[in-house]
Structure formats: structure tokens, C-alpha cells
Amino acid sequence: MTCKRPLPNGLMQRCGIDNKCLQVSKYIALVICWGVFYAVYTFAASYAASLKEVSSLCFSFEKAIPFVPFAIYFYSSSVVFFIWVFFLCNTFRQLSTLSKRIVFITVLSGICFIIFPLKQSFVRPETAHILFSFINTYDTPFNQVPSLHIGYACIFWSGVRNSRFRNLLRMWLVLLMLSTLLVYQHHFIDITTGLMAGFLTLWMFPYRKKRNQQIATVYFFVAAVGLTALLFAIEHSVLGSIFLLWGILVLLLLGRAYYRSNRHFLKDDHGCIGFLRYIFYFPYIAVYRILWLFSRQAPVEIAPNIFVGGLLSCRSARKFAMLGEVSVFDLSAELPE
């Protein structure tokens, strides 16, 4: 049996004031972020339109992408997410972090739009749908690399974590990302670079500086870089594409493991790496071992007969064995002791 004691009147008033200030701050932050987006996006689009010639970057396999009019609902929902995500913030810190993320990725993307002006090369079939009319009026074929739709979706993905429907919303965000291709608004290069911009933003402005989640974001960013390289590799080398895809899958699973702090993603409860896992994660294990060789440190005695260090070499193991009975505690998630 629990007893809930009422809060003092002063504290209740303070909570009410803070909550009211937070609600007002959400509107202010939304207006500021929307203003930055409108100014940057409009200026970059006007600049690209003023150029005599703007090229496109499209890969041959993209010609097989179908035009799916229904996907316009997912594409247009980005506006709803842009507004709603501010009101999912429960604290001033969350609101501040979200605002910094949106302003940063907007300015970063705007700089890229000006330095690398590109345009959509596919001709969208005629359709009388009102949402397509809205896109044709207010959106432009410019401002392609990186896709702000994708960059914002990465931020929205993190922002909806406070919602009870976050799994459903994240499925919708996946469809939103795909819709950028299906409504002929972006090319593949825009998607992968948008992911790069999104993960970079999440890494620079985390909600909480948790080491494992920061490392996970780095792995996701590198995977997005690999996806960009894969687009070019597909055009020239099938074998190279397979190896790149292998590395990308490894990076994605590593990021997932670190994000969930899963220490058993590679080794079992006995500290051993299974044969199939060893083969699949071989690129990661090989790089990890190489880095370990250059950063190997001798065991340090932190208390009488208690040492902390890296993976034991054969020489160190024989040295410790001479001391008598030795117990080794394996704290590494990557290398078996």
C-alpha cells in the first residue's frame, strides 16, 4: 500500500509555471526552426534556379524505380512530423536539443545545396492529386544532396521515442524515406547523403551523452558512407559491391548492438565466438585485432595481485602462470580471452 502525499502549494505553482513556459517555448522553437528552414531552403533553391545549368546524379538502376502516387501521403507527412515532434518534448533540454538538431542539419544541407547544386532528373507523370499540386507549387526539383526529408526523418526517429505509438511512427518514417524515391522527388544519392547528415547531427547533439549510443551513431554514419560508396560500386564491380554490402551489414548490426548495449552480440555466455559469427563479423574482428596490436598495453597492477590490461599475449600469459593459480575475467565484447 502506497500513500501519495500532495505537493506543497509553492511547488505546484512552480511546476505549473515551468510547464506553461515549456509549452510557450515549443511554439517559439517551432517558429524559429521553420523560419530557418524556409529561409535556407528558399535561398538555395533560388540560387540553383538562377544557374544556367544544373546537373543531376542518377544511377542506371534507378530507372527501374516505379512511380507510386499513393506514396505522396507518406512524403507529405514530413510537415506533420516537423510540427508534432516539438510537442513530444517533455523537458527544456529535449526541446533545446531538438531545435539545435533541426537548425544544424538545415544550415548544413543548405551549404551543400549551394556548393553541389543538383536537380531531380525524372519527369513525374501527370496527376491531379492535390498534394502533388502542392509539391509542384511550393517544392522544387533542386536542393537534392543531402535530402532534407531523410535528414529530418532521422531526427524525427529519435524525437518520437516519447510517444506510446513510437513503433508505428517509426514504420511510417521508413515509408516516408522510401516515398522520396517513389514520388520522383529524390535520387538514391540524396537518400544516402541525407542519412549521413542525419547521423552526424544525432552524434553532435545527443539527448544524453551515453557512450554506447554515441558509438552506435558513428557506426550508422560509417554505414551510410558505405551505402554512398556502394551506389558507385554497383555501376562498376559486382564483386566489390558484394564486399561493400557485407561491410555495411556488419556496421549496421554493430551499431544496433552498441545502441542496445548488447554485450553478447558476438560472443556467447562462455566467451567464445561461434564459427558462423566469426565468418560474418570477420571484417570487424580483423580490423579490431589490427588496432589492438598497435594499442596493446602491458597489464597494470591496480591492487596486490590484481591486474588490468588488454588481451594477454603468450609471453604475458606464461609470466602470470608462473605466479600460481590465475583467474582471468574477460570484459571484452569483441575478442575471446
Rank of each mutant, 00 (worst) to 15 (best):
V174T: 00
V174S: 10
L175D: 00
L175K: 00
L175T: 03
L176P: 01
L178H: 05
T180R: 07
T180D: 05
T180C: 06
T180S: 12
L181S: 09
V183L: 12
Q185L: 05
H186A: 11
H187W: 12
F188L: 15
I189P: 02
D190H: 11
D190F: 09
D190S: 11
I191C: 08
T192L: 04
L195H: 09
A197P: 00
A197R: 01
A197M: 14
G198K: 10
G198Q: 08
F199A: 10
T201L: 06
T201A: 05
L202S: 03
W203N: 05
W203P: 00
F205H: 07
K209S: 11
K209P: 04
K210V: 14
R211G: 03
Q213Y: 04
Q214M: 13
A216W: 10
T217F: 07
T217W: 09
T217P: 00
V218S: 02
V218K: 05
F221E: 13
F221G: 02
V222T: 13
A223W: 06
A224K: 06
G226Y: 12
G226K: 10
G226V: 00
L227W: 09
A229Q: 12
A229I: 13
L231T: 09
L231V: 05
F232G: 06
A233C: 14
A233H: 07
A233V: 15
A233K: 10
A233D: 15
E235F: 07
E235D: 12
E235G: 02
E235Y: 08
H236P: 01
H236S: 05
S237P: 01
V238L: 13
G240A: 09
G240H: 06
G240V: 06
S241E: 08
I242K: 11
I242A: 14
F243H: 01
L245G: 12
G247I: 03
I248P: 14
I248V: 15
L249Y: 06
V250C: 12
L251A: 14
L252R: 02
L254C: 13
G255T: 06
R256D: 02
R256K: 11
R256V: 04
A257V: 01
A257F: 04
A257W: 06
